[in-house]
Design a protein around this nucleic acid. Structure first.
Lengths: 337, 337
DNA sequence: ACAAATTGCTTAATCGTTTTCGTGTTTTAA
DNA sequence: TTAAAACACGAAAACGATTAAGCAATTTGT
């Protein structure tokens, strides 16, 4: 690997001069600069980020913690899109993306924080994890700039999708389509689930809907088997709902299958709605009624906020940025009455 | 940040001793080691990967180049799964994953190779890109260990899914279900497309099927609009096919919609088959007949091969590892006759 | 009991940069 | 003409680790 030393030798100048020339400092003569740049190119010089980092204590790389229980966040449509947008934005601004090692089985493994320190990440983004995990807590409480997605911590900036408005809009839409018997299979307990659920109750109350407790059930996110089972239970009720809201689009398919297995039609016999707006939702027939999350904006805002936090630690304020989704009407909720 | 220097000061030993103790060299006394480890923990010592890299010229990080034309590989279900598996395997073995910056719009951007050198990646994995791109070529021809996925280069190791067998198995399955009029909408030109297409022709020939040229059409991968249009054309033929194979599962939905739009039923009136085995294929009704790619194995093999290449450059041979997929029968191909 | 081997630690060089503080030369101002 | 300012560059320390070589002190073999 050719280094500045090699260039300095060829050019007959000091290493310091080479460094300054390549960084375009203004105390180097224009022709000297040009010559050095020329030689650097000819020799195939490649800067060494490790050396630069060692000196400047900046890596221009961001740690990403995107883990799911079983699944990695990568195979999670919603988070993959958020991450993609985050990555684009970060790269535009000169930062690289590295995953925080989530392999918990190695003997000499480091905690998330240790790993982040080891790699000297300039900042870290956290999403899609078990926020109860003490290791996550440790990371969040460290002095590393952190932005979290979809989970609020004390004193940390967060980008959250507006689950309250999302569910509220969805329920309103369903209500306006004429439904009065609306069931909600919500996801496993989490901050997101909490806000959606309480929004559901509140909205129903505002609309004057009486929701029997049987109508509110739980199933893990992105799990079709459990939503299938829960849907069966709903359909078995003496007074079954006319519309079922699912934890997310994917798990909605579990419910759809249960409904079809009964020989019922969607949306004629039973209406369904999902959440997230994954790509397939538009391409499925009937198109899924759902809340389309603005994943692009979520990722972008997270990156912008994090980089701002890194580059302007004094002036950047800790805030909660709320990103709203949108009702995608689709065709899976029928107009009734 | 506390460094080895701080530890050495507290322990009253030299920095070298600290380094050796923490790396468990055997020329340091057991009690000294223990003491140093203890103090390191107490002080909250964190190793500095940049310094280590500078000295050892090893980063234990792997570059990942996963870009699509418009989409990043991240939002591409197939590649997301491959990447996920790659990541897991690499992390188990102590390597971190960093994306090779694919943002082509920055003024002072580096080429893929420059970026890889800058970050001193120990190795690089390439998938899902435009392999014609001169920058990709440059990277592939460099002295950095490289593994490619689904594309063969001279003198480089590759992990490929067995497209020849995949299409062959699929056509055989369809044939055995009684179909004789099989159309194939293949993806845009690429090595993968080539091998699938020639396998299609060969298999049909072996089975004695006459495939009219009208039956073979092209549409971009993962594009439902174009498959919709091509499907319409197929259905408009005087002698339309009884089964249509699509570039992939996702684009298959475009065809499905076109078929439904005609008021036809699947698979009763027209049969369809996809490729990839994305998650939704199992959960859709009717379940999609498809070739399930072994993404887990693809990612794992790629990581293993790459790390082997890095750690045992002499003894590791350049090879092409072929990973076979499997027919998932599903319900979208009807039994006829 | 004495040379040889082992143990345990230190010294010092090095990796490739950045950056502060000089220093000599040239230009500008008065 | 001369002092001050501007310009161009260099010397050297520092960032935080690794590692070869060396050196006492201790243990081992005979």
């Amino acid at each position: 690997m050719v280094s500045m030393k090699d260039i300095s030798a060829v050019c007959g100048v000091s290493i310091a001069t080479v460094s300054k020339a390549l960084n375009d400092h203004r105390d180097i003569g224009e022709e000297t600069k040009e010559h050095i740049r020329q030689v650097a190119k000819e020799l195939g010089y490649s800067p060494n980020s490790a050396a630069k980092t060692l000196k400047t204590n900046r890596t221009y790389s961001l740690g990403v913690l995107f883990v799911d229980d079983e699944q990695s966040g990568l195979t999670h449509d919603y988070f993959a899109h958020v991450l993609d947008s985050f990555k684009r934005t970060a790269e535009e601004r000169g930062y690289d993306i590295t995953f925080i090692n989530s392999c918990k089985t190695r003997p000499q493994r480091m905690s998330y924080l240790e790993h982040s320190r080891y790699r000297r990440f300039d900042g870290v983004v956290i999403a899609c994890v078990d926020f109860e995990d003490p290791e996550v807590e440790e990371l969040v409480r460290s002095n590393i700039p952190v932005v979290t997605i979809d989970h609020l911590f004390n004193n940390r900036s967060t980008i959250v999708s507006d689950n309250v408005k999302g569910i509220s809009d969805l329920v309103h839409y369903i209500y306006e389509m004429g439904h009065r018997k609306i069931a909600y299979i919500h996801g496993a307990d989490s901050a997101v689930t909490q806000s959606r659920l309480s929004s559901f109750y509140r909205t129903c109350e505002e609309l004057g809907l009486e929701i029997p407790s049987d109508y509110v059930r739980e199933a893990p996110y992105r799990n079709t088997k459990d939503t299938y089972a829960e849907t069966v239970k709903l359909l078995d009720l003496k007074d079954p709902p006319t519309c079922i809201i699912y934890p997310d689009d994917f798990s909605c398919f579990g419910g759809i299958n249960a409904i079809y297995a009964r020989g019922l039609k969607i949306p004629d016999d039973v209406s369904v709605a999902g959440y997230d707006g994954i790509r397939i939702a538009r391409h499925y027939r009937p198109q899924l009624t759902t809340i389309v999350q603005d994943t692009k904006r979520l990722g972008r805002e997270a990156a912008i906020k994090l980089i701002d936090l890194i580059e302007n630690p004094k002036t950047t304020l800790t805030e909660q940025i709320v990103v709203t989704g949108e009702v995608f009407p689709g065709e899976s909720v029928a107009k009734i009455n």
